[in-house]
C-alpha cells in the first residue's frame, strides 16, 4: 500500500460520502436547505457550501497557484439547484486533481498564502489530508443539521464504503 493509493482511496470515500449528502439535499425543499437552525448549527446550505468552498480554495492554491484573500459568502446560493451546480463543478475539478496524482507529486512542496496573506509551503499530501479531514468534520455537522430538520442523514461512514470497496 503506497501513500498515493491511500490518499486516492480516501478521496474515493469522500466523493461517495458527499454524493450521498448531495442526494439528501435533493430531498429537501429550498426553504429547508436554507433554514437557519440556530447557534452551533447554521444551515445545511451554509455548512455544505463552506465545505465545497474550502475545496475550491485549495484547488485554486494547488492547481492554479492563486491564493484567494477572502472566502465567499456561505449563504450565496438561493436554491439547491444553484448550489448543486457549484458542488458538481468543484467535485469534477477535485477528481481530476486526485486522478492525476503521482507518488512524487504528493511530496512536492506547495507554496500558498492563507487568507491573512501569510506565506506557507507544505507537501501536497499534507494539504490533501487537511482537505479530506475538513470535509469529514463538516459531514458530521451537515448530518446534525439534517437531523435537526427531522430528516434521517445518510450513512457516510468509511466502513460502509469500505465494505463495498475492499
Amino acid at each position: 500500500m503506497s501513500l498515493l493509493h491511500s490518499i486516492q482511496r480516501q478521496f474515493r470515500h469522500d466523493a461517495w460520502a458527499k454524493a450521498r449528502l448531495a442526494e439528501a439535499v435533493r430531498g429537501l425543499t429550498d426553504a429547508e436547505f436554507a433554514r437557519d437552525l440556530g447557534p452551533g448549527f447554521g444551515s445545511v446550505r451554509a455548512k455544505f457550501c463552506h465545505t465545497v468552498d474550502a475545496e475550491h480554495l485549495w484547488l485554486q492554491r494547488i492547481v492554479d497557484g492563486v491564493s484567494a484573500a477572502e472566502r465567499p459568502n456561505d449563504n450565496r446560493h438561493a436554491t439547491r439547484a444553484e448550489f448543486l451546480g457549484w458542488y458538481e463543478q468543484v467535485q469534477a475539478r477535485k477528481q481530476a486533481l486526485i486522478a492525476g496524482l503521482t507518488e512524487d507529486r504528493l511530496r512536492v512542496g506547495i507554496s500558498y498564502r492563507n487568507l491573512s496573506g501569510k506565506p506557507f509551503t507544505q507537501p501536497l499530501y499534507e494539504l490533501l489530508q487537511h482537505v479530506a479531514l475538513h470535509a469529514a468534520y463538516h459531514r458530521g455537522q451537515i448530518a446534525a443539521c439534517l437531523r435537526a430538520l427531522g430528516k434521517q442523514p445518510p450513512a457516510t461512514d468509511y466502513i460502509d464504503w469500505s465494505r463495498e470497496n475492499p
Binding site: H13, G38, P39, G40, F41, L133, A136, Y137, H138, R139, G140, Q141, A143, A144, T156, D157, Y158
Partner: peptide, 18 residues
C-alpha cells in the same frame, strides 16, 4: 474518520451551549 465526523458535532454542540 468516525472521530473526525463527531468532532464536528462536538464543536456544534459546544457552540450551541454558548
Amino acid at each position: 474518520w468516525h472521530g473526525q465526523y463527531h468532532r464536528g458535532q462536538i464543536s456544534s454542540a459546544l457552540r450551541a451551549i454558548g
